[in-house]
Design a binder for these strands. Sequence first.
DNA 1: GCCAAACATGACACTTGATTCATGTCTCGA
DNA 2: TCGAGACATGAATCAAGTGTCATGTTTGGC
Lengths: 213, 213
Amino acid sequence: MLNTASRKRALPLPKTGRGEMTRRKILDSAKREIGRRGFAEASISTITAEAGVAQGTFYIYFRSKEDVMRELVLHMGRMLRHHLTEATEGARDRIEAERLGLRAFLDFVRRNPDLYKVVEESQFVDEKVYRQYYTEFAKSYRIALAAAEKRGEITPGGTENAIEVRAWMLMGIAVFLGQRYGLWDPKAPLDPIVDVATAMLAHGMAAPGMAAR
Amino acid sequence: MLNTASRKRALPLPKTGRGEMTRRKILDSAKREIGRRGFAEASISTITAEAGVAQGTFYIYFRSKEDVMRELVLHMGRMLRHHLTEATEGARDRIEAERLGLRAFLDFVRRNPDLYKVVEESQFVDEKVYRQYYTEFAKSYRIALAAAEKRGEITPGGTENAIEVRAWMLMGIAVFLGQRYGLWDPKAPLDPIVDVATAMLAHGMAAPGMAAR
DNA sequence: GCCAAACATGACACTTGATTCATGTCTCGA
DNA sequence: TCGAGACATGAATCAAGTGTCATGTTTGGC
């Protein structure tokens, strides 16, 4: 059921307006269904019913449930990337970019909880896309951090590897705060949270005069 | 299938040595199976086969696959807590405790990748245990951070809320580094990674003289 | 040694939902 | 306006694995 046909290249995109509409509707209710009830509980029949099409229609556009999920992960990647680029482009320095980016990320999670959950669950459905998703973000991060380092905005990490570690730390912070305050506590004011996080990113938490190597 | 019987209190523990042995064997191969193939792909029949017992035996000890998973999450919580307590008890200050804890965590993930993955996936099978798992860790963290703050080892976060934010940041860092270097790149030397991370926790990454608010 | 409780067996009845397909209907360029 | 490709239908097929249960076997206290 997993690796036979579903591994192949995606099905051709629709060629008419009607088709595009239908595909979008399916994708949309798949996002909602999978996001809310989880991949296992979400059924094709529920998805198509909510989209207002017949079951078979699903298979005109997607090979399987895994296939829609993959598509949704890609979609989230594009949307989030766009959202973040926009949010951070006015930043004066890297630290401010981190603040703005984190803020924008938390906003995004609150606005798109279903999509966000789909991406997280994709890890257990198609690890490859999931890895790709984060690996690409890590790459952007590395580039941004290296540039900031060159500009003297952040302390030199040292090795090339250090940049990678920092990138993953930053992503981990975002994801966990996204989970805690984006999904689980969606009413908490974001500004204080982002302030604390940014201060920690900028200066750490060691009291002045502590050893801390 | 989900919320009928499986929500109830756990089945009574075995009363004989034989029973204990059997239960343990099932738990063990469940860990392996679910960890490696994922919850959906893991079948009771595979689990029992690998444990060397009949299918029906499974239901003497567990109500369902969800039920074993819950048990495994609890188990991981206990093991990890113990491992971390042991690893950090010699620390001179909070920053050193963070270093030792992170190092121990990454070790743990490398040694128990299956169990670790089960916990992560539990989020999509029984969100309640998953939340409980992290909420409890967050609580320990809050206590440790508050104490360190009082001892003057770390900068005061300010509000009570700040401690919570820091705790989730620290967990996010650990989890993401665990994923990246524990699971995905299990050969990379840990010390340099932990060094970079600790430095970042201690002092942040803002270059001296940068605005950073 | 005996027996009641505990444990183990494994075939199978059942549920569930994914995917197929034969049969229409619609779209849009020429 | 026509027709070929595109799109849509939904009932039928099919696979897969869960959880049950009637029937043994083992354990350990007495």
